[in-house]
Design a protein around this nucleic acid. Structure first.
Length: 297
DNA sequence: AACAATGTTCAGTC
DNA sequence: GGACTGAACATTGT
């Protein structure tokens, strides 16, 4: 169930292990995952080509592909689009992972966090597959079938990547409107890459209520939020995923704030289950308002 | 058995 | 048209 850091891990797996290998077979028969393409359309577009680069913005990945004889990987060749194939867009949805097999090398994967269950990966969860001429493969594995594969994915609906957005851009995009700040963080058209856990973690680090209207944040608060988000992204990438966030383990019944010990509170914000510290992330009303209610559990 | 799940999209309302 | 809300999507795990 990947957010930006997990998707970046998957992108690296592709970039390091799946490039420059000729595609000799494509399974694009899952019409839900491959929508709106017709079965066979992605296959026909990719057969005989190679993946030559893997990119990411937010949670969306796309791979550039070579010309039919692999020409683009051998440099120059700037004679027009015939030298390149279409981009292959990959989105891991809620539970997708990328698995790359290579002859003589161990299988590598990225995306969904590691689970130590002994359960073998059932082939029925392979939603999309590229087979390479060397006998290896790239598989999009997804138990829940909400991942997506498509040719030439548009990126116009995505805001700047959460990992590279500047503080000034972030402030302009976030601090406006009346929507809850958490909902704004989850809006991929504003900032791309933040998911439910990352949003809870960054807001907790910054001690900001997830329910605070986005436009009501003070300039220092937005700055804290930006810095907390960058720290949470870096920490997740270093430690293996967003589930390693400090407050994530406290997202459960009876959980307490890892900093102050106050009970964690749960609710729905922006349509997603949300946990926050009842003390440090209390929703403060506009200037002049009091906070008369004692903390309730 | 009912419900939640680390995501996106789309129909609907203001 | 933009901002916002809530349900739907497919499937699994609790």
């Amino acid at each position: 169930m990947p957010e930006l850091p997990e998707v970046e891990t998957a992108r690296k797996v592709i970039a390091e292990r799946a490039l420059h290998r000729t595609i000799v077979a494509v399974d694009d028969t899952d019409s839900y995952v491959c929508r709106p393409h017709a079965p066979g359309q992605i296959r026909d577009a990719l057969l005989g080509r190679q993946l030559i680069a893997a990119h990411r913005r937010g949670k969306t990945m796309w791979c550039e592909t070579s010309g039919l004889d692999g020409s683009a990987e051998h440099g120059s060749a700037e004679h027009g689009s015939a030298e390149h194939g279409p981009d292959l867009g990959l989105h891991l949805g809620m539970a997708g992972r990328i698995v790359v097999e290579s002859p003589g090398l161990e299988t590598v994967w990225g995306g969904e966090p590691f689970r130590r269950d002994a359960q073998p990966a059932r082939a029925q969860w392979d939603r999309f597959r590229l087979d390479f001429a060397d006998g290896g493969s790239l598989v999009l594995f997804d138990k829940r079938r909400l991942s997506r594969v498509r040719l030439n994915p548009g990126l116009a609906a995505l805001g700047p990547d959460a990992g590279t957005v500047t503080e000034a851009e972030f402030r302009d995009l976030v601090r406006r409107g009346t929507v809850a700040v958490k909902a704004r963080l989850l809006d991929q058209s504003k900032i791309a890459g933040v998911g439910n856990l990352l949003a809870d973690e960054a807001l907790w680090q910054a001690r900001i209520s997830p329910q605070a209207p986005a436009g009501s944040l003070s300039r220092p608060a937005v700055r804290r939020l930006y810095q907390s988000l960058q720290a949470a992204l870096a920490s997740a990438e270093a430690n293996g995923g967003v589930h390693t966030g400090e407050v994530i383990a406290a997202r459960r019944r009876g959980g307490v704030c890892p900093r102050c010990g106050a009970p964690m509170r749960q609710g729905v914000v922006g349509g997603r289950t949300t946990w926050w510290c009842s003390r440090e992330q209390a929703l403060r009303r506009a200037a002049g308002a009091r906070t008369p209610r004692r903390a309730s559990v």
